[in-house]
């Protein structure tokens, strides 16, 4: 079934392309939403990534799982997007908070996925990208510094500031 869809995509059959898009839409959006400022921007990144998927579908090895291949493309597209936007960055950074959120309150928090995404989107693009790459994608600071073209120190600092800002936002949400 899935192989047929991939074959159809290779022939640029729209029906199969749509099926593949629909199948991995939520998964893709779960990634892009964390890198984007808004849902619209997340869709842009996702569609950019799917354009790459459809135009390079011949390079996909059917014997390998599709999801990691797709994820790699989406994350790379998001990083490219970050690079393109970084020059235009006009974020007003959140005040850093030194307040500590207790682990107990977090464990108990019934905070919804959408709220988590909303908080991440409130971070500046540089904090958000380092946070995503480190916490969600599992990259090391050395790798992040290479990917984003920043120093290791900046990567660590951005991660630290991202966490502080998120703690602050979580506390506000819990109050």
């Amino acid at each position: 079934m899935f192989r047929d869809i991939i074959k159809g995509c290779r022939k640029r059959w729209r029906k199969d392309q749509k099926e593949l898009y629909e199948m991995f839409y939520a998964y893709g959006m779960s990634i892009t939403l964390r890198y984007a400022d808004s849902r619209e921007e997340a869709v842009d990144i996702l569609n950019d990534a799917f354009m790459k998927v459809f135009t390079n579908i011949r390079t996909y090895n059917e014997h390998q799982p599709f999801k990691p291949w797709l994820r790699k493309i989406i994350v790379n597209t998001a990083i490219n997007h970050y690079h393109k936007n970084s020059r235009m960055e006009k974020w007003e950074y959140l005040e850093e908070s030194n307040n500590k959120l207790s682990t107990e309150s977090m464990a108990l928090s019934g905070i919804h996925y959408d709220e988590i995404i909303e908080m991440v989107q409130q971070l500046s693009p540089s904090y958000r990208t380092v946070f995503n790459l480190y916490v969600i994608e599992g990259f090391k600071h050395e790798e992040i510094s290479e990917i984003l073209g920043i120093s290791i120190g900046t990567s660590k600092s951005n991660l630290s500031k991202a966490k502080r800002n998120l703690r602050s936002l979580l506390e506000e949400n819990l109050i």
Binding site: I116, V135, K163
Partner: peptide, 14 residues
């Protein structure tokens, strides 16, 4: 914070 976001990142329903 990391654990929370790692966990929540998997709970998407979009």
């Amino acid at each position: 914070i990391e654990r929370l976001f790692q966990k929540k990142a998997e709970e998407y329903q979009i």
